[in-house]
Amino acid sequence: MQMENLIEIQNVSFSYADRSIISDLSLVIPRGKAVAIMGGSGCGKTTLLNLIGGRISPSKGDVVVDGLSVPTLNTKELFDLRKRMGMLFQTGALLTDLSVFENVAFPIREHTRLPENILRKVVLMKLETVGLRGARELMPSELSGGMARRVALARAIALEPMMIMYDEPFTGLDPISKGVIAKLIRELNEILGITSIIVSHDVVDACAISDYAYLMGDGRIIGQGTPDDVQRSGSEHVRQFMDGLPDGPVPYQYPAGEYLDDLARGS
């Protein structure tokens, strides 16, 4: 049975050490689409990905991925689900003691018993997808930031997942590398039909490659729609984020007491 929505997040709250990070958040990610989740730093975007991946459990609400309620899965079921999820970490998270080839081969070696000659073909195909077949012998420390992320992407698709979560895929990249990554995300989504979740604070780049966009602020959804809708939205929150205004509903000042009082108080 194919459900229309690959991921449904239903009224989820999450707090860490008495600090509420996500409160009563609901969103759906349709199968086969590329969805951007945008928001400022510290608004709970990475927490959201951890909830989907089952690395943390919500204090309230439910996270449903491909018809399975993630918080109720046992370790084995969770691991089976994760084999069908890919995740691209911000830093790439390549294993530093393995070569590029071995990094891409890693999930295949861990989860399948492919003979070495077939494994080699699969790995080379994945590396060819990201254009790094020639870099297979390099170690992660010899790669540039953009290349490392492409290798990580090759590794994320090694087990042919149904979805990939991208955690800040554009951060810290030069414009050319950014373009390469954006093209890859788009291609994987359109050609292979892999559902993409792009978590980013980079409005322009994220909107350019997504079919739908959510805007998060303060642990809640503050705006959603097609990228064009969101960019034209009249909401104050959305406008501030989209236009990069220093002050607005998200205040410039970190909450503090009266300035003059503070100064006058002395030491």
Partner: peptide, 22 residues
């Protein structure tokens, strides 16, 4: 510690590999 700081352990978890074992 560095593997943790560079998200390698989290990465393994998301690849369904138990870092405690691996």
């Amino acid at each position: 510690g560095l593997m943790k700081a560079t998200e390698q352990l989290a990465g393994m978890e998301m690849m369904a590999v138990n870092p405690l074992m691996r």
